[in-house]
Design a protein around this nucleic acid. Structure first.
Lengths: 342, 342
DNA sequence: TTGTAGGCGTTATCAC
DNA sequence: GTGATAACGCCTACAA
């Protein structure tokens, strides 16, 4: 593990027979002060030969800009799909030559303080505050003084920019898919948890029904305590036991859809022939493993990560130019669990 | 987004009526050069009042140590469980006051070069090179000169330190669980993919059988082309169609176990009464959603991330003191899919 | 068109 | 005990 010293701007200057300042100007293409083409070329050539790369720390110290963003999250990458958000953020940052730090707090205030302390020490330029499930959260005030951008979350107070899934549109597009297949008796197996997704998806469901003149029947909406496969099983079982059995079910998430599959199986119902199902989350590991594969709605994790980073970088570079993205749409992923009503 | 300037060591010096050097000595408790207690206290008090935090960039520039680690991965956080590795790494780093950068290459050589370039620019002290699935990989030579540590991977050449799951032990512990429940006719639904897990788990399976005097029957090992639920379904179906039907199946992973559940269900077999199943990966989202919940083997993702970081930091701080961890054990997660042989 | 000099915030080495 | 002073690598007036 030999540590060979990297060449500095001065090494290039010596080799080229010019001053360090000239090297800096040449390499950075500073407008205003022009450098003779011959000099520039020579400098560039020598820099390449020496394998020169600027020392980002020195640059950052001097310019007071570290080109570094931090993504802070309570439970980083704990939710399987949350990795996509990080990935979107990281790739967007990398595209601009920026760096992403990651810090997870595990929910402990003390750890969070330590992480925010690190944000300051390392002169991070901006912060993406992300949540694994779309929630409304408090922003620690210790972060004041840095651009903070929320991803997959909304703030309780303060005017923070944020990007999160459009739950209403998500509920709409899922329901719409079922309506387009001819279904009118559409159940909604949901959760009673107090999160934006619950109200939003329900509203989207109702809007879609309304738009097509289908009467909303509250008895077709089941809200279970939680949102596990077991809850989906119970909800679906109860819906499918009605004398007028729904021909389609929209499930709050893929886990619940997995439970619905089991309920249907036990009752001898074939998907999608006897029952159509749409899930939510596009957890590929479930959606693709189910048989038939599950049609579902994909949350825009990658996009949220990327948009958050793009917005912060734009803000940092040009000032307040861009627009607060807010709610962004979800995509329907069509697979095999929706059938035309016979 | 107001950016208030952080106080520097000089601000404290001015306020305390001492020199910056004294402040540095006092705050860092440098042994050798002693500072009057009164001075130290005064300096500490003022530092606290001003909310002083050292500028990590300046420190790093001066000391040539950034206290920063990068985790480079082809497909960061793409595999659901891979997030745990990142999390283990991040938390271990944070515990020592270090910072984790993350960079994903998406498999593209060009992106990888850019990321490695960033590693150098930002004076990263060490690199964790991680893979999402235990594989044997090439380390880019551009990383030479930095401590590189492999997590969930082994290197094709060069003597890199690494940490990866003990596949043999994993296969052993899974099979052992079934043997302990009284089973002797134990199938193994595996994959034909050329990865260390395939050979390792098979060997563990054989070792366990041997240890308990159970004859190894190659016909009980089915290797499907891939390792999806569909493959598990096929493999299990074929095993369960034998005239002497196995009473237990060890599945290469949880997705395949999910397929095995479906095969069992279609053949009217109840788990765990008629058939016991053990999976691999502990993908909670599947293992907990299945009914009955799946007993499986958990890969030590969190531990691998943490151990990699601990090792790199130890190496950086004390020189070559610690031991190369190599293969580390997996944990059996007992749930409900294994029953005593009646 | 290029070089000089000062400074970003720290730390290390000397003197005093 | 404490304080100048000189680095670390880079940027940027300003001077030449």
């Amino acid at each position: 593990m030999n540590v060979r010293q990297r060449p500095s701007i001065r090494d290039i200057a010596d080799a080229a027979g010019v001053s360090p300042a000239t090297v800096s100007l040449a390499l950075n293409n500073v407008r205003g002060a022009r450098i003779a083409d011959a000099t520039r070329l020579k400098v560039e050539k020598i820099a390449a030969e020496l394998g020169y790369a600027p020392n980002g720390l020195a640059q950052a110290l001097r310019t007071n800009r570290s080109h570094t963003l931090a993504i802070i999250s309570e439970e980083i990458a704990t939710a399987p799909y949350a990795g996509r958000l990080i990935r979107g953020a990281q790739e967007a940052a990398s595209k601009h030559g920026w760096i992403m730090l990651i810090m997870s707090t595990g929910g402990a205030k003390e750890v969070e303080e330590r992480e925010i302390e690190a944000v300051w020490r390392h002169q991070v330029d901006g912060v993406i505050y992300a949540d694994t499930a779309h929630r409304i959260i408090d922003i620690p005030e210790a972060l004041e003084g840095k651009p903070v951008f929320l991803a997959n979350a909304e703030a309780t107070h303060g005017d923070f920019w944020s990007v999160y899934p459009d739950e209403i549109q998500g509920g709409y597009v899922a329901t719409r898919e079922l309506i387009d297949a001819g279904h009118e008796e559409i159940g909604f197996v949901s959760t009673a948890m107090d999160i934006p997704a619950r109200a939003g998806r329900l509203q989207g469901y109702r809007t879609a029904l309304e738009e097509f003149g289908i009467r909303f029947d509250p008895r077709l909406v089941i809200e279970e305590a939680s949102s596990f496969a077991e809850d989906g099983y119970r909800g679906a079982h109860s819906l499918l036991s009605r004398k007028k059995r729904p021909t389609a079910i929209f499930c709050f998430n893929d886990r619940m859809a997995m439970g619905a599959y089991r309920a249907a199986g036990e009752m001898g119902l074939l998907i999608p022939k006897d029952l159509s199902v749409v899930g939510f989350d596009n957890q590929e590991i479930i959606a693709e493993a189910l048989s038939p594969q599950l049609t579902t709605v994909a949350l825009p994790y990658y996009e949220m990560g990327a948009m958050a980073v793009e917005a912060v970088i734009a803000e940092l570079q040009n000032g307040n130019t861009s627009k607060n993205p807010g709610a962004i749409p979800n995509a329907l992923i069509k697979r095999e669990s929706v059938g035309l009503l016979q």
